[in-house]
Amino acid sequence: MHTIEHDIERPDRDVVAAFEEIPSTIVSDVTGNVGITMDPGIRPASDGIEMAGTAITVKAAPGDNLIIHKAITMAEPGDVLVIDCDGYVGTGHVGELMCTSCKANDLAGLVIDGGYRDSREIAEMAFPVYGRGVNPQGPLKQDPGSVNVTVSCGGVSVDPGDIVVGDDDGLAVIPGDGAERVLELAREKLDAEDTTREEIEDGTYLFDLKGYDELFEELEVVGPEDSIQ
């Protein structure tokens, strides 16, 4: 069954925009490091990417991009296309012209768990694109697929309206209904790290600041003489 849902609930745009200043590492830290960061196989097409936007989710058949073309026409400024192609990299599902269309219509970025092409042109266009691989093979256009359904991208379940944060380290996903709380925690974490950084620059060790000595004392530390010969 193919589903196309035009109306989705988006978080407040000011909240989404605020995540542009929050690194993916911080999002991961304050959300417990579990199930919210995409796997490292989804990589940025270029260095220096900073992205935050609202997910428009796409379920596309591996090797086919007809539904992706449709989703681009449905997305609003500030949205991120999150495309689930089952990790298939035997086809470049999106290329320069499609990404140019996304950029021209003020989308925040594109994430595809699958292959893309025109990698050099995409890298030079200063539009945030993440994908699992590059392949020059062109796609088919015969399987509609679905838009704005729950998808799996990079091992993370993504719903339409979730917030996607991306940078050079990778991608983190924030459920739309919990965005304000995550933003609050992220800002507190950044402030705390600023204080910690000052102490480190003065010569204090993280090992001491964080009390890791207590954890270390609980370990059974062995030396070379204890190894099996």
Rank of each mutant, 00 (worst) to 15 (best):
M1S: 09
H6W: 00
I8E: 04
R10W: 02
P11N: 09
D14C: 06
F19S: 05
E20F: 03
S24L: 11
V34D: 04
E50L: 13
M51A: 10
G53T: 06
G53C: 00
I56P: 00
V58S: 04
A60H: 05
P62Y: 02
N65P: 00
N65A: 10
L66G: 03
A71Y: 05
E76F: 02
G78E: 03
G78N: 05
V80P: 01
D84S: 14
D84R: 08
D86I: 11
H93W: 14
V94F: 10
L97Y: 15
C99G: 01
D106W: 07
D106G: 00
L107V: 01
S119F: 05
R120D: 14
R120C: 06
Y130D: 08
R132A: 15
P136Q: 06
K141Y: 06
Q142H: 02
Q142L: 13
P144Q: 04
S146Y: 06
V147H: 02
N148G: 10
G161N: 13
D169Q: 09
L171P: 00
I174C: 10
P175V: 10
L185S: 13
L185G: 01
A186S: 15
R187M: 08
E193S: 11
R197K: 14
R197Y: 03
I200K: 04
I200M: 14
Y205G: 01
Y205R: 14
F207M: 14
K210G: 05
G211R: 02
Y212F: 12
L215A: 13
L215K: 11
V221S: 12
E225Q: 10
S227H: 09
